[in-house]
Design a protein around this nucleic acid. Sequence first.
DNA 1: CTATGTAAACAAC
DNA 2: GTTGTTTACATAG
Length: 874
Amino acid sequence: MALMPSLSSPPLSPSFTSSISSEQAYSQQLPPTHLPFQFHPLLQQHQQLHQLQPLSATFTPESSGSSNSSLSEIPEDVMMEMLGDHGAAEASTSTSSVSRFGADAFMPTPDDVVMNDDLEPIPRDRCNTWPLQRPQFDSSLISKPTIEKIPEEDPDLFGSNEQCGRLGGTSTNGSIAMLNNSNGDALFGGEMPDSPEDGSSNSKKATTRRNAWGNMSYAELISTAINASPEKRLTLAQVYEWMVQNVPYFRDKGDSNSSAGWKKSRITVLLLIISVSLEFIVPARSRRLDLYFKSFSSRSRLIILHRPTCEASRLPRMNDSLDDDFPPEPRGRCYTWPMQQFVFQDPSTLPQHHPHNPYHPMHPHQLPHMHHTLPQPLLNLNMTTLTSSGSSVASSIGGGAQGSPGAAATAQPGCSSSNVIAAATASSQPQTVGQMLAASVPCSSGMTLGMSLNLSQGGGPMPAKKKRCRKKPTDQLAQKKPNPWGEESYSDIIAKALESAPDGRLKLNEIYQWFSDNILYFRERSSQEEAAGWKNSIRHNLSLHSRFMRIQNEGAGKSSWWVINPEAKPGRNPRRTRERSNTIEATTKAALDKSRRGAKKRIEKRALMGSVHSGLNGNSTAGSITSIQHDMYDDDSMQSPFDSMTAFRSRTQSTMSVPGNTSRVSPTNCELYDDLEFPSWVGDTPAVPNIPNDLVDRTDQMRIDNGPLAGLQIKQEPKPIKTEPIAPPSYHELNSVRGPCVQNPLLRNPIVPSTNFKPMPLPGAFGGYQNGANPWLTTSVPSPLPGIQSCGIVAAQNTLASSSALPIDLENLTLPDQPLMDMDVDALIRHELSQAGGQKSKATNEKSFRNFICAPHPAHSKSTNQSVKSFNTQ
DNA sequence: CTATGTAAACAAC
DNA sequence: GTTGTTTACATAG
């Protein structure tokens, strides 16, 4: 260590003073536990060295503070201090060796070992470093705490309130406890347990000491020392002192040159522990830490705290090379010190437009906060490479993580960047630092950065199968924002876009444009290739969320209008498909698929066999579908046919656009009918394959302005239906059923049939409808809002337009426990109320119309749904 | 488990 | 290619 230049408190240089001031100011801005960046041990110690001791003209704080300084610039003596002689030797000889900060790199080896890169690694037995002779300790030494009092540091240095952790006094009780195992054996006496936690679990360990001082590893000793201190923290010197005073082996060596070896080992082990384990932390950048630093020699800049939430007995095993006799012990995370995520923001990249746009600061390039809080040397770091997330680092180095162009870095929550402690350096070579972290920071995934780097750098062939990896970009994590553009979800943004529209409606491409215009993240991804993803997400969200509804645009080929569903509650609304799983709960997917396959097969077979029962109900698709249900219900042997209906119905309930959805029915909707055990006649009926996919579920989407049954989405030309025009219902009438139609909330809820539901044959009920007897469908209904067609029109008309009497089917369907009836009556009551109430027409403008048709009503959806279905199938 | 984001298949236009 | 629906899957909370 002769390379170390004057370590004895040299006068502070102006630059140093300046540096300290800035850092003190920095540290004052953030509490120690909310530091914006967890210092890497090497970084920190190196930095501290620079600050406290301008070592030489060639290694000044100025030089070290430059953005270009790298780890390679760290003087060897510093590295020696940081790593121990061996680590320094390695670090000074090759960059890759830094990645070997694992246990092997720190295992004590003879000081005179000359590192020769040309030599092949020589296997050696473990633990051949320590003397074979293992003196027996006098347990009496431990009978009472050896340390009665820890020498206090100069109070002038620490200030009145800055008490250094000390051992002694009452605190030694803890030490006593820890120094004895459950059997009362002296910890450092002859028979030593494997661990303080379980001294008798292994008889072998109980009789064999692993080290000259006993079975405790350095880590355990250090932990014991730290935990024995009142404040659960020690400086390195205090660790030394504790060792000397509590462990006879070290005591014997503590006051002579012979201590250098084990102290160096302490350093080595400490660094190793700190780097590899989660057990020790150093409060980076705390003022107290600075004071500690001032109070000790340059070699004592580590302040090691045993994580308070970690049990001393749950010491990390760090590495097999240190302690491979112990089985792995599960250990919980000890994120006592919250990991503060570093964020870099380049002010020059702040958006200049849309000053009030809340989305603009969200851009990853423009991460808004903490920039001013970081000391400049840290800002100069290539932060991307400092990510402790293996995947992030790998991707960053490889050219940028997905969707994370920002030059920010942070750590994965599961990675122990917060546990990166100790030595410091200034700026460093990105990959070197990354490798350092890779070697020293265990990630939650169990993969180190180095490993990740290797993988990302072509270490092996990529699997052919594309595997999604949607790790959040580091900048996103840094901001703790769920998305790279900010906190708001797609649906939130879409809602804003729609709300911002003058008419409250936007076409899809307009929504796209709004995204692009108002959110920088999307604007910067406006290329066709890049935009495909988020546009897809927009479409997905539009379709999926009940929050939005689609209004058919009248023009042929025109895209629909998308509007906010006024019925939707503010904020979150359930996804349309959300209920699906709830309704299928009784049926496993596999079973359902099997059922579908079987049903489909049967249908195909029947289709091949030709029409057998075509004369029964085949004249009307409506009648067909109704009959399907009817037939199903009559068949007790069938496996819960209503369940099947419910299942797929609820799925199609997702298709909740406003009327006019004449197309783009998911193919799965067709398949859904395969769930049904169709009666034999079904497959024989020509109309069966043409059963409108949405007839059951999408009655609200029917269009009536395009001709007979145009809205039924019947792919095959529908059978001629009664074409006698009937006046469209009034808006009151619409209102009576508007609820289920506009938003069709009923479709968002599963229809839960009564278990004892036995539909009546309903001969009269279907009689009139089998002929396509929905006269109403032949009539266009003027819509005050272009494209808006009330889905409730059909039902309303069926119910009300022809007469004030209840439809015959409703009368016949009136059963106490029948869900169908429940809602039909409900709709009728609402209708009657609306009629009697003389509501004013609100259809004079779009918004009023929307409010009108979309106003919530108390009818529970499934009832209304059933009602609509009932009407439409008539 | 839920909410969300993302990718993708599929179909109609 | 666009629009729309739906499913599947990954991830975070």
